[in-house]
Each structure stands twice: as C-alpha cells, then as structure tokens.
Amino acid sequence: MGLEDLNHNFLTARLEDLVRWARSHSVWPATFGLACCAIEMMATGAAHFDISRFGMEIFRGSPRQADLMIVAGRVSQKMAPVLRQVYDQMMEPKWVISMGVCASTGGMFNNYAIVQGVDQVVPVDVYAPGCPPGPETLLHAILTLHQQISTGEITRRREETGAGAELALDAPLPGRGVLHAPSHVAVGRPH
C-alpha cells in the first residue's frame, strides 16, 4: 500500500468527519451583545463559567473573523438592519444562537419597537430560552450547537433558510398592524 514506509503515526478518517470535528471545536463567536443577555454572555466568558473550556473564549470584535453570532438580547426595529449587516459580513460557514426569549420571540415586549423573533432577520440554529438565560443555559445551547455542527452536513448552504445575501421576502409580514418592517431589511424566514 505504501503506508509501510511511513515512520510516524497516522490516522485514517473520512475528510467530512475531520472537518466537522475541527469546526465544532473551534467556533469563534462575534460580540453581539444587545441587552441584558449580553451581560450573561459576558459572564459566561468570564472565569466563573469559563467558556474557554469549549474553545470559545475568543470573542471577535470583527464579524469577519467570527463564525458564530450569539444574538444576546432584544432586537429593535432600528437594530435589525444592523444585525443583518453584521450577519452578512460573517464568513460561511456561520451559525446563529438566539439567546433569550426577546431574541427568540420578542419575549414580553410584544410591541411596535421589537422584532418579534430574530429568525425573521437571520436564520437561527439554536434557541436558548430564559430571560435572561443563565450561563448554564447558554453553555447548553453552545453544546447543542457543537453537536449540530459535528453531525450536520458540512456543505450545507442555506438558500432555503434565507441566509443568502439578496434573499428578500415578497409577501409582507403578517400582523404588523400600523407598523411596517423596515423596507431595507432583506427578510427571510427559516422553513
């Protein structure tokens, strides 16, 4: 076979598995703190809960260096375009954790100012419940995401989930009342 001539150890595996393994162990989050949840996200990064146990302690200020966006807090109508822009600036493959009920559903703020669920703006992989979710909940969400990455498809492209940069939803959002979704938001919805 030719392998007999190698004089050091080797390992055989499917490339796909190796890529998934590597990806799941090196997720770099972007700092996208918005509200209360951001404080708990920072607490998760600090010594007591120590997110570096999962190889994720480097929060990147620049979205171009990050592959995970933790949307920590309520997303206002004014912030939604910014959020989408930051998401678009991240390199593929990228993942999103929606942290807290405000990011996931609007939470208790069912009103004119808050986007009722960040999944109207970006596709979400893991939702972390709580108001705010404790660091343990966030860690669980992160582990869930790791599991998803290590079992998911590596070449998953997300046209169907609305992650393409130019994807826009033609139909208006339901039930906006007197409000309008900011017209400049490219709105996509996961399935």
């Binding site: 918005l34 509200a35 209360c36 404080i39 807090g73 309520r74 206002s76 109508q77 004014k78 912030m79 910014v82 208790m108 703020f109 069912n110 009103n111 004119y112 100012a113 808050i114 705010p132």
Partner: peptide, 28 residues
Amino acid sequence: GYLHTGMEKTGEELTYLQGGTNVTRMDY
C-alpha cells in the same frame, strides 16, 4: 435608539403588579 424596546408603552399595558417585570429590564 438601537435598543428602544417600547417599555413605556408596554408599561401601560401591564398592571401595577406586573409592572415590575417591565421596569426591571431597563437598567439591567
């Protein structure tokens, strides 16, 4: 304004007993 949550409007929708849950989320 990037975190404008409409809490003063929501506060008008909640009873005085529920109001605490609203205001507590202002200065977190």
